[in-house]
C-alpha cells in the first residue's frame, strides 16, 4: 500500500514539476541574456495548448509514428520512478537500478528516432541519425560514471547508491564522486540536448538534433513528447543532485521529513538548473564533429573517477 502511494505521488510529482523546471531554465537563460523571457509557467500553458490542438499526421507515417509518443512517455516516466527524488527509497527501486534506468531511456530514444524516420522527411532522418550517434558516444561515459558510483556503493540499485553516498562527510570531497559528477554533468548536457551539444531553442533545421525528430509532430503527440523531454531532464538532474549532494533527503516516511526533503530537493534542482543556464549562456554550440571531443572528455573524467578509487584509497 505504501509503495503504491509512493509510486502515485512520485509520478504526480514528476509530471507536475518537469514543465516548471523547463520554464525556470528558459526564463533564467533569457534574463542572463538581457531578455525578459517567457514566464516560468509558460511550459504548462504550452502543453495545455498542444493537447487541445488538432493534429496533422503525415500520409507516409505508419503506426510507429503514433505509438512513439506513448512509448516515450511511459518509458521516461517509468525511468523516473526508479530514481529517488525526495525519499531514499525510490518507488520502483526493486524493479531496476541504474542499468534499467539507462535502458528505459534508451528504449524511449530508440522509438523517438524511429518516429523521426517514419515520415519520410529528410530532416527527421537527420535528427535520428545525430541523436543516435551522440547518444552512443555519450553512453560509455555515462555507464563508466554510473559504474564508479555503483562500485563505491556496492550496488547498482539507485536507493542503495544514495544510502552509500549519505555517509559521514561530504561526498563530493571524494575525488571519485567529484570526477564522476563532472562526467555526468557533461552527459546531462548531451542527454537533455543543451547548448554546447544541441540548441533547444534553435530554428535552423540543419543544426537541430532533438527538435529535428519532432518536426512532423503536432497536437497531443507533440505535447507528450515535450513533456517526456522535460521529465527526462528533471529525472537526470534529480539523479545528479541526489547522488552527489545527498544532504537533506528523507530516510523515513514521516510527513515532516518528506516535506523538508521536498524543499531541499527543489533547492538543489534550482541550483543545478542555474549551473546549466550558466553553461548555456557562456558557451557557444559546438560543431557536430567537435561534440565527440567533449564527450571524450566526459569519458576520460569518468575513467579517472574510476582510477581515483585506486589513486586515492
Amino acid at each position: 500500500m505504501m509503495t503504491f502511494v509512493a509510486t502515485v505521488a512520485q509520478a504526480l510529482l514528476l509530471l507536475a514539476l518537469a514543465p516548471l523546471l523547463t520554464g525556470c531554465i528558459r526564463n533564467w537563460k533569457a534574463k542572463l541574456q538581457n531578455r525578459r523571457g517567457p514566464r516560468v509557467w509558460q511550459p504548462y500553458l504550452d502543453l495545455l495548448k498542444f493537447l487541445r490542438k488538432d493534429m496533422v499526421i503525415s500520409e507516409h507515417a505508419s503506426w510507429i509514428f503514433s505509438a512513439m509518443p506513448y512509448v516515450l512517455f511511459t518509458s521516461t516516466l517509468l525511468a523516473g520512478l526508479m530514481v529517488p527524488l525526495v525519499t531514499v527509497a525510490a518507488p520502483l527501486s526493486l524493479f531496476g537500478g541504474a542499468l534499467a534506468f539507462v535502458g528505459l531511456l534508451a528504449l524511449g530514444r530508440f522509438f523517438l528516432a524511429l518516429g523521426g524516420l517514419d515520415t519520410a522527411s529528410a530532416f527527421g532522418g537527420m535528427g535520428s541519425s545525430r541523436e543516435m550517434t551522440l547518444a552512443a558516444i555519450a553512453e560509455p561515459a555515462l555507464m563508466l560514471a554510473v559504474f564508479t558510483v555503483a562500485i563505491q556503493a556496492g550496488s547498482t540499485n539507485l536507493s542503495r547508491v544514495l544510502q552509500a553516498a549519505q555517509g559521514p562527510g561530504w561526498t563530493l570531497l571524494n575525488p571519485a564522486y567529484a570526477l564522476a559528477f563532472a562526467a555526468l554533468f557533461i552527459v546531462l548536457l548531451a542527454e537533455t540536448g543543451r547548448i554546447p551539444i544541441d540548441n533547444p531553442a534553435t530554428h535552423l533545421e540543419l543544426t537541430m538534433i532533438h527538435e529535428a525528430m519532432l518536426l512532423e509532430y503536432s497536437g497531443r503527440y507533440l505535447a507528450l513528447i515535450e513533456w517526456s523531454a522535460s521529465i527526462k531532464q528533471l529525472v537526470l538532474m534529480a539523479l545528479l543532485a541526489n547522488i552527489f549532494f545527498p544532504a537533506g533527503i528523507a530516510t523515513e516516511m514521516t510527513p515532516g521529513r518528506v516535506g523538508f526533503s521536498l524543499i531541499v530537493f527543489l533547492g538543489k534542482l534550482l541550483v543545478l538548473a542555474g549551473a546549466v543556464v550558466l553553461v548555456e549562456t557562456t558557451n557557444a554550440k559546438l560543431r557536430l564533429f567537435r561534440v565527440p571531443d567533449l564527450l571524450g572528455v566526459a569519458f576520460i573524467l569518468a575513467a579517472l573517477a574510476l582510477l581515483s578509487t585506486f589513486l586515492f584509497q
Binding site: L48, L51, R52, K53, D54, M55, V56, I57, S58, E59, H60, A61, T119, A120, S121, A122, F123, E205, L215, E216, G219, R220
Partner: peptide, 15 residues
C-alpha cells in the same frame, strides 16, 4: 483535453 481535436492526414510538412 483532446476529445474534440481532429486528426488530419496530410502530406509530410518537411519544413
Amino acid at each position: 483535453f483532446a476529445r474534440h481535436s481532429r486528426v488530419r492526414i496530410g502530406p509530410t510538412w518537411d519544413c
